[in-house]
Simulated scan of single mutants.
Amino acid sequence: MTQLILGIALGLGIGFICRYFDLPLPAPPRLVGALLVVAMTLGFIAGGSF
């Protein structure tokens, strides 16, 4: 549970820093690319379960 909260906080922190310093967001600009990142993350989490 703490890893989930830490991951969400880290993601929000990176997004805030990118917006504050006007840096390009380190994520794909398209919905398909964003879904790919989500799929890779879920696969990584599922792989760690086994």
Rank of each mutant, 00 (worst) to 15 (best):
P26K: 04
L36Q: 08
L25V: 05
G15I: 01
P24D: 07
Q3G: 14
G13T: 10
Y20P: 00
I45G: 05
R19W: 05
G11Q: 06
G7Q: 09
P26M: 07
G7H: 09
M40S: 11
F44G: 10
L12V: 14
L23F: 15
D22H: 10
P24K: 08
Q3T: 12
D22T: 05
G15C: 03
I17L: 15
V37C: 11
V38G: 02
L25Y: 12
I5L: 10
L31F: 08
G11W: 03
L36F: 12
P24T: 10
L25Q: 09
L42K: 04
L23K: 15
G11A: 14
Q3A: 15
T2P: 05
A9Q: 12
A9R: 12
F16M: 06
G15T: 04
L12I: 13
P26I: 06
P29W: 02
G33M: 05
T41E: 00
A46V: 15
G33R: 06
A46E: 11
I5V: 10
I45Q: 09
S49F: 13
D22M: 07
A9E: 12
A9F: 13
P24I: 01
R19V: 03
L10S: 06
M40Y: 11
A27M: 14
P26S: 10
I14M: 12
V38P: 01
F50Y: 08
C18L: 01
P28D: 01
I14E: 07
I8M: 08
I45A: 14
L35P: 01
S49W: 11
F50N: 00
V37G: 08
R30S: 05
A9D: 08
M1E: 11
F21P: 00
L42G: 02
L23P: 03
G47T: 11
V38R: 07
P29Y: 00
L35Y: 01
G47K: 07
G7L: 12
